[in-house]
Design a protein around this nucleic acid. Sequence first.
DNA 1: GCGATTTGACCAGG
DNA 2: CCTGGTCAAATCGC
Length: 324
Amino acid sequence: MARSMGSVVDGNNGGGGLVVTELSHIKELVRQLEVHLGGSHDLCRHLTTQIFTITERSISIVTSSNDRKRSVADAGLASPLSAAATPTSDLTADGPFRNAKKRKVMEKRSHRVRVGSAGDNPVDDGHSWRKYGQKEILGAKNPRGYYRCTHRHSQGCLATKQVQRTDEDPTLFDIIYHGDHTCVQRPPPLAPAAVGRPEHNPDASSLLQSLTAGLTVKTEGLPASAAADLQGWGAAAPFYLSSSTPASGCLERSPFSASENNWGVSPATSDSYLPFDDAEWRGRNELHEVVSALVLAGAPAPAPPAVDGLDDLLDTDDIASFFA
DNA sequence: GCGATTTGACCAGG
DNA sequence: CCTGGTCAAATCGC
């Protein structure tokens, strides 16, 4: 295991560095954008804040991804990829009835993120969670907390997450998300009128455009291994931009919650965004979240080519063999 | 009183 | 048998 890991890590260092560079650039642009926005336009400032946060997370994720990858593999997180097994029987939870404690068959989609702390807890990811367990994990200094969506019973939302303080840095938390939110919880009122059109200021607009352009070009230039790295360890954004099932969206309090759930991609035509296939969804999800968030914030236009280029990079076979 | 958290027990997979 | 994930009773906090 160690041998194959080594070579991959090497490859990632290069790609990861590139990503960090670009993300840093984005960060700077956002800073400038915020300056241009001045004191007005609460929504815009909120958006820039979110972009900034996401970017910072992305950077920390990339920079810590080498360590991560090992623990991810050891923790068996790769299993959903390598064993894209029978998706049928597990999710149909017979609920709190007879075969209650019959878990462990969790072929649900999952992805990891590492987030900073807000006080003694991980930063709020916009969803409401209810803790249902805590466990000491062998080899880890800190216990792992188990959370499920508050709306599990009321709306049958099966999303869960595991939160564990990292060994190295007590201010950081590893979070593993399982499943999608299928609950519907309207976000709190947030500049309702202006939502979705953050283009008051021409300067701000052009800044955001260069921001998304920069991300597009450079990301496409990344080696596939770097892309694999990003997916293997975590998304930058612990909230979902387009992860809802077709049945019922779970918008929750996404910082980018717009009036409609379109994100510039028509549900009817966006086959590249349907989160049906576990492996594919996982593969695309991570960078998509970052890219989508940024693109969404800055571009009124529909999904840019960047997303398609990304899909080519995020080859799921590569990922599977990577973890094999 | 209700909902959330804590915590020991239970269960399944490896 | 060990470990991780979940359950559910007890407890806490509003």
